[in-house]
Amino acid sequence: MKVTIDQDRCVASGQCVVAAAEVFDQRDEDGVAVLLNPDPPAEQAADVRHAAVVCPALAIHIEE
């Protein structure tokens, strides 16, 4: 799984962090999402997919 995020689209809802805290974090200055691991292990895949589903800005892209 390869994950990318589009920080320009991000609206800092933080839902990706709630869904998969090992993979996503937020910038201190404005809460915009930061990718911690673009290549998450299989056991985190479901959480990352869920993060992409609930991202209100559709800013998370996944290549399986």
Binding site: V11, A12, G14, V17, D30, G31, V32
Partner: peptide, 17 residues
């Protein structure tokens, strides 16, 4: 909208909350 909203997003980040 995005310019103004980003001025107030930091306090609502998950860790801050």
């Amino acid at each position: 909208h995005a310019r103004l909203r980003r001025m107030v997003t930091a306090p609502f980040a998950i860790k801050r909350v």
